[in-house]
Design a protein around this nucleic acid. Structure first.
Length: 569
RNA sequence: CGGGAUGUGGCGCAGCUUGGUUAGCGCGUCGGUCUGGGGGACCGAAGGUCGGAGGUUCAAAUCCUCUCAUCCCGACCA
């Protein structure tokens, strides 16, 4: 490519509405432009990077036996009704009507379609299978943000494993786990696998691949001592046992005028660790109480996971008063009847002599024995761990790191195959439901994650594996014949050796050319100018670290060819 | 959905409080001259429904109402 013909509108300033580093850099480098919230146009360089990321994913999927498909993005309502997800996907699914009035949805993921195709598998002999595609997903996100990190329209590699049994699923899950680690290594992303909530996907278990970054949206618990890693949505920690006084034979009501918060109640003599915090939640329309220790936080995802609820929200003040008879600040579960489901965090199990609201404004109970006085339906893990608590495995204080979710793999099980009727006959002639796994990597998000973690104050620093160009030959004086001829020869040598090179043949000032190559983040640069040519030299600059050395004109191309080869491993 | 902020040539901004010439500035763009190893200088030029609609007024970028868009925070702390 000749830069004089390249369309890549670089900017001196980042747009004011960009906040995340990757967003600013990708806009400044002319990789992409926003069309509207959550939708980006990929410009030539952006698309090149995107496709290099996709190709790495494709290669690693093929290596584990994946077969590439391409499924429709637009799906009939009936398909999603069959799995029950037409309803459960809620507002996150884009829906529209065709001219006949038939409702269709834009695919957010493709379990249903792949499972439908899997109905054509009739014999166990066809299994296992790994099917995948790299295709556009549409999700009406509540809040698109941070450039490509969270968008409403994006390319995703989604793969699906099909097996006769759960042992097979485990094998394919492990194959994907390994393939994903290789993919992230090739993308130069330091991704850590963590236990995760399966969320709306359902299924038996899942692993997220997390890359530490302040631009992320997930918090990951990490033990600095052992290998414990988990999303806060799943993480636990070891708590010190608390020895309570037995307390009175029955709870006692006492007046607490004006006391509305845990902190205020603590000042009034009830330690937060000995309070019950009563969260009034509405789970799919049903008022539910979630109890946690006074000094603990409720994790909504954990509540969602344990209840299996789809729509979960805090109760409104009106609903709270209607069901419990008091306002927030004086709420409790003592004496609440069976009509309201009560879930209590495990940290409250066995506790006595506790304090909690009495469901009458300005009154609380003390001396509460939770087992005796509260009608707990289930003891579950609801609490969000915090940094510094003890690792559940080794008791070292844990840390919490902000992360980008770069990939996610799920052990789905049989639910989609069952819904779509994907069955096979096993060796004994018995009908069996196909066991599925599903595995996703967002191409654009990974591109942004690389940008997020590979830059300096001059711009991006792409790993060679995904760089828009591996090398640029920067011509300092295009009207100097000897300079241009030497640059052209080097450029042709690079192309002949398979290096993805570009020659900057623009009649522009040196500063402009340097700045552009740096903001774009091309890994290697050969600067060819009359000054060096006179001595038979060109300059070789490595973008990462901006180290420049002189090399002989005759060796220049080979220097880059070698550097590219080393970087690609 | 709740809260906050911002919308003025391609990008970054000023002007708005206190309404009043032809709406400015930097960068970028186009033409030219001089330059030529870190976003150069000078001359000239193009490019704007001041997000949109309605209202107040003799007069609106500026005041009022509604609306749309974009960004950030939150989706719990009883």
């Amino acid at each position: 490519m000749r830069w004089s013909r390249l369309f890549t509108p670089t900017l001196r300033d980042a747009p004011a509405d960009a906040d995340a580093v990757s967003h600013k850099m990708l806009i400044r480098g002319g990789f992409m432009r926003q069309l509207h919230s959550g939708h980006y146009s990929m410009l030539p360089l952006g698309w090149k990077v995107h496709e290099k990321v996709a190709q790495i994913v494709r290669e690693e999927m093929n290596l584990i036996g994946g077969q590439e498909f391409l499924l429709p993005a637009m799906h009939p309502k009936s398909l999603w009704e069959a799995s029950g997800r037409w309803a459960t996907m809620g507002d996150e699914m884009f829906r529209l009507e065709d001219r006949s009035g038939n409702e269709v949805g834009l695919g957010m993921t493709h379990e249903e379609v792949f499972a439908t195709i899997a109905t054509e598998i009739n014999s166990y002999k066809t299994l296992p299978q790994i099917w995948y595609q790299i295709q556009w997903k549409f999700r009406d996100e509540p809040r698109p943000k941070a450039g490509l990190l969270r968008v409403r329209e994006f390319a995703m590699k989604d793969s699906y494993s099909l097996d006769l049994d759960f042992d097979g699923l485990d094998r394919n899950f492990d194959l994907h786990h390994e393939a994903y680690l290789k993919i992230f290594r090739r993308l130069d992303l330091d991704a850590m696998p963590v236990e995760a909530s399966s969320g709306a996907m359902g299924g038996a278990g899942s692993i997220e691949f997390m890359v530490a970054s302040p631009a992320g949206e997930d918090d990951v618990v990490r033990c600095p001592n052992c290998d414990y890693r988990a999303n806060v949505e799943r993480a636990t920690s070891a708590l010190d046992a608390i020895a309570d006084d037995a307390g009175p034979d029955a709870p006692e009501r006492f007046p607490t005028p004006g006391i509305r918060t845990i902190a205020a109640l603590e000042e009034a003599g009830a330690p937060a660790v000995s309070q019950i915090k009563t969260m009034v939640m509405v789970v799919d329309g049903a008022v539910t109480l979630a109890l946690v220790r006074g000094d603990h936080q409720l994790n909504m995802q954990k509540l969602q996971d344990v209840t299996g609820g789809i729509n979960i929200r805090p109760a409104t003040p009106e609903e709270t008063v209607e069901h419990l008879g008091a306002n927030p600040g004086s709420l409790g579960a003592v004496g609440v009847n069976d009509e309201i489901r009560i879930l209590a965090d495990e940290a409250l199990q066995g506790r006595t002599n506790l304090t909690t609201g009495a469901n009458e404004d300005d009154w609380h109970w003390r001396g509460v024995d939770i087992a005796r006085d509260v009608n707990v339906a289930e003891w579950v893990d609801l609490r969000e761990v915090t940094a510094g608590e003890a690792c559940p495995k080794c008791h070292t204080p844990i840390e919490i790191v902000r992360c980008i979710e770069a990939g996610h793999i799920f052990k789905l099980g049989t639910q989609y195959a069952e819904a779509m009727g994907a069955h096979v006959l096993d060796a004994d002639g018995n009908k069996r439901t196909i066991v599925m796994g599903s595995y996703g990597i967002g191409v654009g998000r990974n591109m942004a994650t690389i940008a997020e973690t590979h830059h300096d104050d001059k711009g991006l620093i792409w790993p060679v594996s995904v760089a828009p160009y591996e090398a640029v030959v920067t011509v300092m004086k295009v009207d100097d014949e000897a300079t241009m001829a030497a640059a052209e020869q080097i450029y042709q040598d690079l192309l002949a050796a398979g290096v993805d090179a570009i020659i900057d043949d623009r009649d522009a000032r040196a500063g402009v050319k340097f700045a552009d190559s740096e903001v774009i983040g091309i890994p290697f640069r050969l600067t060819v100018g009359p000054r060096g040519i006179k001595d038979g030299n060109v300059e070789f600059t490595v973008r990462n670290g901006m180290v420049t050395t002189d090399v002989a004109v005759a060796d220049a191309a080979q220097t880059v060819i070698d550097a590219v080869a080393v970087a690609k491993g």
